[in-house]
Structure formats: structure tokens, C-alpha cells
Amino acid sequence: MDYYFAEGTLVWLRENEQHLPSTVSSCGGGVINFITNYGQVYTYKLNALTREKVLAMHPSSIEGVEDMATLTDLHEGAIMHNVHMRYNQDNIYTYIGSILVSVNPYKPISGLYDKATMEQYSNYHLGEAAPHIFAIANECYRCLWKRNDNQCVLISGESGAGKTESTKLILKYISAMSQHSLDPTAKENISNVEQAILESSPIMEAFGNAKTIYNNNSSRFGKFIQLNFCQKGNIQGGKIIDCIL
């Protein structure tokens, strides 16, 4: 029995143990042609075997989602496709539940980290606004007081992914939040702590970095940055512990 696929239909093409987002470019004469979103072209005969290799794409994968926990297509191809679509729209952050997936844009994005954006995310709980690293930092800072317990943010990724920059952004946000309603002297002390932590990183990295194909200054060790807060929520101090991997 032959199967027919309408031209322009968006599907998942299972090829070499991968799910490739694809479009039916033509279908007729017992032959069907696909073009993947990555420029690959595949041609198959229309038969039952072809039907097993082709899966309908759910609307959530076609339109894209901010939280990939809501994706109906549950496979690696759907995750990569969703991240790729958002990346092309300069949306470099995507949630998987309470986990934030970020992609290095390798270019400045206007307004992404300015003061207005920080103020915006200070007014929302995690998941109430678009995915952003400030949302993670805000949730971590607020949970210190909601749960009266230590909080931790784990930043992981390959060389050149932007781990160091993400750390700086979290420090920038927490420092800004801890300075609210303080007198100028106290604000200066908090800024000095933040600056000392940021300036110590290049010194540490000078002893344990190496060049990779993605990054000329890649860390060969892990870092644990600890911030200490007073009961009023202000930064009192901090330290960095390194761990050779």
C-alpha cells in the first residue's frame, strides 16, 4: 500500500538514529523527497517502510516553546530544533522546567542585560516571564529568604559556551538586588566585593587555562564561588575555591 504526504508538510525524518526536522518538497510517482532544516536532501520510495521513517511534527515543535518540558515530541531532535529556532530569533535562553539552557550568541543583543531588564525580572517568579539568566539569579536570591536556606546555581557547558560570562551576569544581578534601599557607603562596599570576585578570576585562570578550538582561554578546572549575605539581604563577603578536573 502506498502513502501520500502533502507537499510542504513538516515532519520528523528518522535517519541514522536521528530525528531530522524536514519538509516534504514533493510527493508523487511513487517517490517522496524531503529537505531537512539543515539543507540535507533525502529521496525515498513511497511504501510502508517509508511511513515508519516519517513522523508527524507536533504544533509545539513547529511554533517553538519557551519551556521544553511542554514539548510533545520527546526526542533529542525536538530539543535541538526548538533551541535552534529560538536562537535564530535572538532568544538565546530556553527553559527545561527549572533548568535554563543558554546558547552563546557570539554577538551583542540590545537590551538583554541592561538595568531595565534587571528591574523587570525582579518583579516575577521563575517561569512567569521569558527565559533569562536574571530569572534564575532572582529565584536563587529570593529563595534565600523564602526558604531560609543556602542556595546554589550550577553552571555547566563545553569550552566557549559562556560559563564565565554567565557567572558574571549572576553576580551582577545579585549585587544590584542587594544594593536596593542602601546608603551610598554600603552600596560601595557591596560593589567592591563583587569587583574583587570578578577581578580574581583572571588571576586564577592564568594558572590553569589552555587553548582549545573553541576558546583561546579555556579553564581546565572548576570554580566554586561563595557569597555571604547578612540578614538584610546585603552581600557581606565571598570566596572562590578552585578544583582541578
Rank of each mutant, 00 (worst) to 15 (best):
G222W: 15
N37M: 15
C152F: 13
D67T: 04
M118K: 10
V11N: 03
L13R: 03
I240H: 07
G222A: 13
K115Q: 04
F5C: 08
N216Q: 05
N47V: 12
L171D: 04
I244W: 12
Y44R: 11
L20G: 00
S22D: 09
H58R: 08
P202E: 10
V41H: 11
I190P: 05
M80R: 10
R14K: 10
S98Y: 10
I174M: 02
V193K: 01
I190F: 09
S61H: 06
S181A: 07
Y3W: 12
M80A: 06
Y106R: 15
L182T: 09
Y173H: 06
Y4L: 02
M1P: 14
K211E: 02
V65E: 04
S181F: 13
S200R: 08
Y121K: 00
A137V: 08
V153H: 13
N150E: 15
Y42N: 05
V83M: 11
H58M: 04
S98H: 04
H58G: 09
F221M: 03
I235K: 01
T164N: 04
A206E: 09
L71V: 08
Y173A: 02
G39F: 06
Q179V: 02
S178C: 02
H81T: 15
A56C: 09
E139S: 08
G111D: 07
S25T: 11
I79N: 06
D67F: 11
I32G: 00
T212S: 12
G127R: 15
I170C: 07
F224Q: 06
M57I: 03
W12F: 02
D73K: 01
G8H: 10
I92N: 00
H180W: 10
M85A: 05
E205L: 15
N37P: 08
S60Y: 13
E119T: 13
S181C: 10
V41P: 05
S219M: 14
D242N: 15
V31M: 03
L198Q: 14
P202A: 14
